[in-house]
């Protein structure tokens, strides 16, 4: 379990005169400089901006599992929770693009949260290079089985006399639900929770009528029949819930999903990026990883870095437009 990779920032401080100390300390036997033929020569840190145990963290750890085999080095996962992942992302973006510092990105941090937070907190992809997309985690609107809601129309029928839970301000859950309700003309009381789990609990206990959460969170309860799925916010159906229509099919243009991708600081040598693309691609192809996706109801979305950047930027613009056009209040200090 040792983690001999270079410490965070000592080099900066000892740069004047102490560089040799830094190098010895840092590189150990490998002389540890980045790039070069030897990449990767030492463990690659994968920073996660969420707490250990969350779905993002699980994905990171599933990736890291396969690292030794695919890349020949270990991939310690480092949790650096804070500001919904903004701190970790910024931290990684500031690192040297040597390929030893990666981060696992959540798309909603860039596409949704940025609508809510102030300029300096907003995370963009500008200082990062995306290596590859990983998967898509769908949002689903669910209702307590006792409500008898089966479709968006059922929910709309009770408009005005409705309370709905979200996973919090600036989350995809909130955006999806607000956009849908706006388009469908449903009115109700928005009750934000800290995350998906308490929102789900509230639906199960009948504290709120409906809530939008991630499929992985909802699945066990859907199978147990305590809650009913209503609609999925994605452009295609989820393979594990083939019967549940997408919002699009129901006539609402609300494509919200949680995409995840691996990125590194901008400006890494092409060989490094290529090694990473190949290595991670190899991990994604393993049976273990695919099984992991399956068990967690994730849909593989293993597209190239360029596509990820394009898609996320497009979504961010689209959301911003929708929010403005419809005068939706996500809250927050952003404009």
């Amino acid at each position: 379990m040792s983690r001999p990779s270079c410490s965070r920032r000592p080099l900066i401080a000892v740069a004047a005169g102490g560089l040799s100390v830094g190098l010895v300390a840092c590189g150990g036997v490998t002389d540890g400089t980045a790039g070069g033929d030897g990449y990767p020569a030492e463990p690659i840190t994968l920073t996660v901006g969420q707490d250990a145990g969350g779905s993002t963290d699980l994905i990171a750890r599933a990736l890291a599992e396969g690292s030794q085999e695919a890349l020949g080095v270990s991939m310690p996962v480092e949790n650096q929770p804070g500001a919904n992942g903004a701190i970790a992302t910024q931290e990684v973006a500031d690192q040297d693009p040597d390929g030893y510092e990666l981060t696992l990105l959540n798309s909603t941090l860039i596409t949704v949260t940025s609508q809510v937070v102030s300029e300096e907190e907003a995370v963009t992809l500008d200082e990062l290079d995306v290596i590859t997309g990983l998967s898509r985690d769908d949002y689903i609107m669910v209702a307590n089985a006792d409500t008898g809601y089966g479709t968006v129309d059922d929910v709309a029928a009770d408009s005005g006399d409705l309370s709905y839970g979200t996973a919090g301000v600036g989350t995809g859950s909130q955006l999806a639900q607000l956009l849908l309700f706006d388009e469908a003309g449903i009115e109700g009381n928005e009750v934000p929770f800290d995350s998906g789990a308490p929102a789900l609990t509230a639906v199960m206990g009948g504290q709120v009528d409906v809530a939008t959460i991630q499929v992985g969170e909802a699945m066990p309860q859907i199978e147990a029949g305590t809650i009913d799925p209503i609609v999925i916010f994605s452009d295609e159906r989820n393979q594990h819930l083939e019967d549940v229509p997408t919002a699009q099919e129901e006539g609402y243009e609300v494509p919200v999903a949680q995409y995840r991708a691996v990125a590194l600081p901008e400006g890494a040598p092409e060989e490094v990026k290529q090694s990473l693309r190949e290595g991670i691609g190899e991990i994604l192809a393993t049976e273990e990883y695919q099984q992991f996706n399956d068990e967690n109801y994730l849909t593989p979305e293993e597209v190239s870095g360029e596509e990820v950047e394009e898609q996320w930027t497009e979504l961010a613009d689209q959301y911003e437009q929708s929010v403005q056009d419809n005068g939706i209040d996500l809250g927050g200090t952003g404009e």
């Binding site: 804070g82 500001a83 701190i87 800290d194 809250g331 927050g332």
Partner: peptide, 18 residues
């Protein structure tokens, strides 16, 4: 603030947003 998304008593510190 979990409800409105406004920052309270953070004095501009990103670390305090959580």
């Amino acid at each position: 603030d979990a409800f409105t998304g406004e920052l309270r008593y953070t004095a501009g510190s990103l670390e305090l947003t959580d």
